[in-house]
Computed example of a mutant assay.
Amino acid sequence: MAAFSQLYDSHINILFNYGLKLTIDKELLQDCIHDVFVKLYTKRTELGAIDNVRSYLFISLKNKLCDELRKRMYMSDTSIEEVNLPAPTDVEDDYMENEQRKNEFSLIKRLLNQLSPRQREALTLYYIEEKKYEDICEIMNMNYQSVRNLMHRGLSKLRTLAS
Rank of each mutant, 00 (worst) to 15 (best):
K64S: 04
K71F: 04
K39P: 02
M1A: 12
G48N: 03
R44C: 08
L15N: 00
L47M: 12
M75R: 04
P86M: 15
R44H: 07
I128P: 01
Q119L: 05
R148N: 08
A2W: 06
S55H: 07
S156T: 14
I128N: 13
R54W: 02
N103M: 12
Q114N: 13
Y8C: 09
D94Y: 12
D51C: 05
A122Q: 06
L7F: 02
T23F: 10
F105G: 06
E27I: 12
A87V: 04
K62V: 00
N63Y: 01
K71D: 08
Y56W: 10
I59E: 11
Y127D: 07
N143V: 11
L61R: 03
L115F: 00
K131P: 02
L85R: 07
C32G: 03
I14C: 12
Q6L: 13
L155N: 09
T160M: 07
G154I: 03
S146R: 10
L29A: 03
T89A: 14
I59L: 08
N143Y: 07
L123Y: 06
G154C: 04
L7H: 05
S163F: 02
V38P: 06
I24L: 07
S60C: 14
R118E: 14
A162N: 06
I80Q: 11
R70I: 01
Y8M: 02
T78F: 10
M96T: 09
G19R: 02
S5H: 14
C137G: 07
L155Y: 01
N149L: 13
L69E: 13
K132D: 13
D35P: 04
Y95C: 06
F37E: 05
F58Y: 14
Y18F: 14
F16C: 01
L150Y: 00
Q119W: 10
S116N: 00
F16M: 04
K21M: 06
E138P: 00
N84R: 08
L115Q: 00
K71V: 01
N113H: 08
E92T: 13
K39Q: 10
L123H: 03
M96G: 03
S79I: 03
S79A: 10
K26Y: 13
S146H: 09
Y8F: 10
I128Y: 13
F58I: 14
S76R: 11
A162D: 06
V147R: 02
E46G: 07
D25V: 07
A3P: 01
K64R: 15
L20V: 02
P86I: 11
N84A: 09
E138A: 14
M75Y: 11
Y41R: 03
S156Q: 09
C137E: 08
N98T: 10
L28M: 14
A2S: 08
K26F: 05
F58D: 08
T42H: 13
E134V: 07
